[in-house]
Every structure is written in structure tokens, then in C-alpha cells.
């Protein structure tokens, strides 16, 4: 597979085209859905007529001409909330993936290259992280430190870096034994040179793939925490909309769930499953050994 050059724009386009060609049908569909959701989040102010945080009509209006997807119990437009909520979900996904993916990846490479005690310590920590039940830990942390958006991102990153670290470490271990890296080291290449010239470019596709999976997990976990009432109350994420809808007394005995609950559900499921499918597809491309 071709390596992405950070300088040549043409090379990047060619690379993207190459990846697109290798994607399966579902991978392509997922990518299109994801791009649409990203556009929705970016252009949220232009796509909505009503404000997303204050009432703009009578409460609990069914979907119709005035309010595309209806309103919630405070008369807030649901379509606006969903558009702006996309920003929260995508931001949580993006930043957690960047933090945990880069952090975990770098830790994995260093552990693999250095070996010895840094490696042992890292692997012990990873083992501990795997056994910890994530959600209860995060609930406790969110309760004690407050659930602002950046706290949630930090907690999420803290609890998800171990997976990329493990994955990248195992790949870096194999890479370390490659002849060309040994030769480079023999010629006196330092840790930094090897890291930037050899390990990082070679492992970058894999890191990207784990970042996509991390983003998916982060979005799921943020939604779960919000659903439990632990989301950032100032940012109306999709999970929080669902939480409000479910907390509405006797919602299942009314027709309100048909829009108030169903639409955020659809968007969240779309986002999560398209990330999953895209991740699977890219995983197969980045690591051909994975059986399809």
C-alpha cells in the first residue's frame, strides 16, 4: 500500500481515491452517511430555522411543516437540537480519538522499541485497564469531577488508550525485527529518527483505523453517560435528548415518543453503526491479515 505523503496534495488525493476503491459497499455507504452527519454538524446554524436551546413553539408538537421533527416538552425544536447535538457527539469522538489514539499509539511504539521495564509496566497497566468495568468507573468519575464536556473527553481518553496501545505495540514488535529497521539502527539512527521515519509512517494507517474505532466507542460512551443523566447539561447531546424523553413520565402511553425518542435514536444508531462498518472495512485494508 502506498504511504501518504504529508506534503504532496496530489498524493493525498490519490491515497484517498485508493482507499475509496478498496472500500466495500457498506464501507462506502457508511462513509457517505458520516460525511453527511459531519456536514450537518458543521452547517447546523444554516440548516435550522429555530434555536436549539430555547423554546420556539408549543410543546410536544408532532413533526410537520413548522417543526420538521416536532418539539420536546419545552417546545424546543427537535431538528435544531439534533443538528447541534451532532456537534457534541462528533467533537467527543474526534478529540477522544486523537488523545487516546495518538497517546496510546506512541506509548505502544515506545514500549515495543524500548522493551524492558517500560514495556512491562505498560502491559501491566493495559492488563489492569482491561479488567476494570469502564462504565461504572466513568460514572463514578463523572459524578465526582463534574460532567463538563472536556472532563468527559479526558475520562474517555484515559479509559480507551489501552486498546490502541496494545494493538500498535504488537505491530511495532513485528516491525522492530524487520531487516531495514535493524540496518537503520546499525547505521546509528536514533530513537527519534526511527520513530518519525519508520515506525510512525508504517503504523499510521493502523493508528487511523483504531482512531475511527475509538471515536465510535467514545460517542457510544458519551451517549450512554448522557442517557444516565451524566452528560454535560449545557450541551444538548443526542444521549441527553433521549434521557429527557425517557424521563418524561408515561411517555410510552403517549404518542410523543414517536418523534421525541425515535429521531435521536435513529441518528445515534446511524452514526455509531456507520463508524463501526467503516472501521471494519478500513481495518481490513490497513491490516490484510485480518480474515474477511
Amino acid at each position: 500500500m502506498e504511504k501518504p505523503s504529508l506534503l504532496g496534495c496530489n498524493a493525498v488525493i490519490r491515497y484517498i481515491k485508493g482507499v475509496w476503491g478498496q472500500l466495500g459497499l457498506f464501507g462506502k455507504i457508511s462513509l457517505i452517511i458520516l460525511l453527511n452527519l459531519v456536514l450537518m454538524a458543521v452547517f447546523a446554524p444554516y440548516l435550522t430555522r429555530h434555536p436549539h436551546h430555547v423554546s420556539s413553539g408549543p410543546p410536544l408538537v408532532p413533526p410537520g411543516a413548522g417543526h420538521l421533527l416536532g418539539t420536546d416538552d419545552l417546545g424546543v425544536d427537535l431538528w435544531s437540537m439534533i443538528c447541534f447535538g451532532a456537534r457534541v457527539s462528533l467533537m467527543v469522538g474526534l478529540f477522544t480519538a486523537l488523545l487516546a489514539g495518538l497517546g496510546g499509539g506512541i506509548a505502544g511504539i515506545i514500549a515495543a522499541y524500548r522493551g524492558g521495564w517500560p514495556d512491562r509496566v505498560l502491559m501491566r497497566i493495559v492488563d489492569i485497564m482491561v479488567v476494570l468495568p469502564d462504565l461504572p468507573v466513568m460514572i463514578v468519575l463523572a459524578v465526582f469531577f463534574g460532567s463538563s464536556l472536556h472532563n468527559i473527553i479526558i475520562v474517555l481518553a484515559l479509559f480507551s488508550w489501552s486498546m490502541p496501545a496494545r494493538l500498535i505495540r504488537s505491530q511495532a514488535l513485528a516491525l522492530k525485527e524487520q531487516a531495514y529497521i535493524k540496518i537503520a539502527a546499525h547505521y546509528g539512527a536514533g530513537m527519534g529518527h526511527l520513530f518519525f521515519r519508520h515506525f510512525l509512517p508504517e503504523l499510521f494507517p493502523l493508528m487511523m483505523v483504531s482512531m475511527i474505532r475509538l471515536a465510535g466507542m467514545a460517542i457510544v460512551t458519551e451517549a450512554s453517560l448522557s442517557f444516565l443523566g451524566l452528560g454535560d447539561p449545557t450541551s444538548r447531546s443526542w444521549g441527553l435528548i433521549i434521557n429527557h424523553a425517557v424521563s418524561f413520565r408515561g411517555i410510552y402511553f403517549t404518542p410523543f415518543w414517536k418523534w421525541w425518542l425515535v429521531y435521536p435514536w435513529i441518528f445515534l444508531t446511524l452514526l455509531v453503526s456507520s463508524l463501526a462498518l467503516l472501521g471494519r472495512d478500513l481495518e481490513g485494508i490497513a491490516d490484510p491479515r485480518i480474515m474477511k
Binding site: Y252, L261, S273, R280
Partner: peptide
Amino acid sequence: YLIMVVFGEIPAFLIGLALLILLAA
């Protein structure tokens, strides 16, 4: 395989809500 990959990623509460809406409500 496809169904399982997607199912594995959807959080429990979304599946639960879907079942609740369809089968209970």
C-alpha cells in the same frame, strides 16, 4: 457477519429502547 459487527457496536440502551418501543409500547 455484517449484522453482528453492527450489533456489537450499538450501545445496549439503544437496542433496549428499540425493543421497548416495538415490543412493549
